[in-house]
Design a protein around this nucleic acid. Structure first.
Length: 400
DNA sequence: ATTCCACAGGAAACAGTGGTCC
DNA sequence: GGACCACTGTTTCCTGTGGAAT
């Protein structure tokens, strides 16, 4: 009798692979035709055309929900312009940065500076005043006579960072051209949040929102087209069943027409099907994939929490559906068990709202008359999931 | 009609870290 | 080596609130 592991490996080796090309199953892979964003591509191109004419265009704002291809379109068009302009001896420099990836305003500015070629000695990663960092970036641009396009993804986060620190960097960015002598700066902001402009300083709105382009959500038919094209290239002929394709499009369309999610779904479903040595991807695989993606998200976010947040989640688990006060008492007990000092109730209240944002718990404000008002929280994920994930944490082993 | 509970959640201040600049 | 800066995670202090109880 052969070793079961060998048997598995043998089977996997002899079974045929239904995925031909994995790369195509990543959202960020863009074959030229696959975006289905013709009118948006035209709009973006048009508003950036002044660069070709060697005058700097007005600032541009691009809106669209996640997975609508807005970043990909912007990047693609700018790199096309770059190619043309290179020949004409009028250099432009593309600087891309994602506000969500940088946790601080300082970090964002430094990432921009690095892309412009500022070394660590010229622009240290900490210690300077924000205005100083900004000044150095502008000096560099002017010195090298660059025509720069700043693409700032998730610019709503930047706006948040700015309001937090009280600096008006956004305003200065939009008006930077007034300070530049031999160069130019164009700002392309990308945002998921259509309402984000309302929170901005009116002075910023007037210069930033000169041009606006909205990427509408994909509908189910468009998602189907996108999936079909990718499937044709990425899978073996006929290995994805029609109902599976439809389900993928429907699931992703049910959220806000997120092509990234649709493509993720079909990729994971394909991988599952391969692992199970199935010749085709079926509806069942897609459902399984959807569940798996969900679980992975939950697990990853549970794991990423620091100790006190984990304790709070455990406290909610132990007293499911209870009020902030009860959760706090439960949390204090847990702290005693693991031998840590408990934080204040104010901080725990804040943590609860933070955790709620991630969707792991659900809060409901209740007014109990003379018994005051409180918020009642319950877990939205299974307790098994929490236990399973926290078991690996040494300090938590006793309390799980 | 008034009181009063049990918090929610904003604002500000603070401590500590890790850095620059002169 | 002291003044200064950004930033995080926290504490302290505070005002506001809907409806049961009186």
């Amino acid at each position: 009798m052969s070793d079961p592991i060998d048997r598995l490996l043998d089977a996997a080796e002899s079974g045929k692979s239904i995925i031909r090309n994995r790369n195509i199953l990543h959202f960020t892979y863009i074959p030229d035709t696959i975006l289905h964003r013709n009118s948006e591509q035209e709009q973006v191109t048009q508003s950036l055309i002044p660069i070709l004419k060697q005058s700097h265009p007005s600032n541009l704002l691009v809106y669209g929900k996640p997975g609508t291809g807005k970043t990909l379109v912007v990047k693609k068009i700018i790199s096309k312009i770059q190619e043309r302009v290179e020949k004409s001896n009028f250099p432009i420099r593309l600087v891309y940065s994602n506000s969500k990836e940088e946790t601080t305003l300082y970090g964002l500015l430094v990432s921009i500076g690095r892309q412009l070629g500022l070394k660590k000695e010229e622009l240290p990663t900490t210690g300077l005043a924000i205005s100083e960092v900004f000044k150095r970036i502008l000096e560099k641009i002017d010195q090298n006579e660059l025509n720069v396009i700043f693409v700032i993804d998730e610019i709503d986060y930047l706006a948040q960072l700015v309001t937090k620190t009280g600096k008006d960097i956004l305003y200065q960015l939009t008006r930077a051209n007034e300070r530049l002598k031999n160069s130019s700066l164009t700002l392309v902001g990308i945002s998921n949040d259509l309402t984000f402009k309302e929170k901005l300083d009116p002075r910023v709105i007037s210069s930033l929102g000169e041009e606006e382009i909205v990427f509408t959500n994909y509908n189910v038919d468009q998602l189907k087209k996108i999936l079909e094209e990718r499937i044709n290239e990425a899978f073996m002929q006929g290995s994805v069943e029609e109902p599976a394709l439809n389900l993928c499009a429907a699931l992703a369309g049910g959220e806000h027409g997120d092509a990234r999610r649709a493509i993720d779904l079909i990729r994971v479903a394909g991988e599952l099907a391969e692992r199970q040595q199935s010749d085709t991807v079926t509806e069942a695989h897609v459902r399984e994939a959807s569940q798996k993606i969900e679980e992975n998200k939950e697990e990853a976010s549970l794991k990423s929490y620091p100790l006190h947040e984990k304790l709070v989640i455990l406290a909610i688990m132990k007293a499911n559906g209870s009020s902030t006060g009860e959760i706090y008492t439960s949390y204090k007990n847990l702290c005693k068990v693991v031998g840590r000092d408990g934080l204040t109730q104010r901080r725990i209240t804040q943590m609860l709202s933070e955790i709620e944002l991630s969707g792991i718990i659900n809060g409901r404000l209740v007014h109990q008359g003379i018994h005051g008002r409180t918020k009642k929280y319950r877990l939205t994920i299974s307790t098994e999931m929490v236990k399973k994930t926290f078991k690996d944490d040494l300090t938590l082993q006793d309390v799980v």
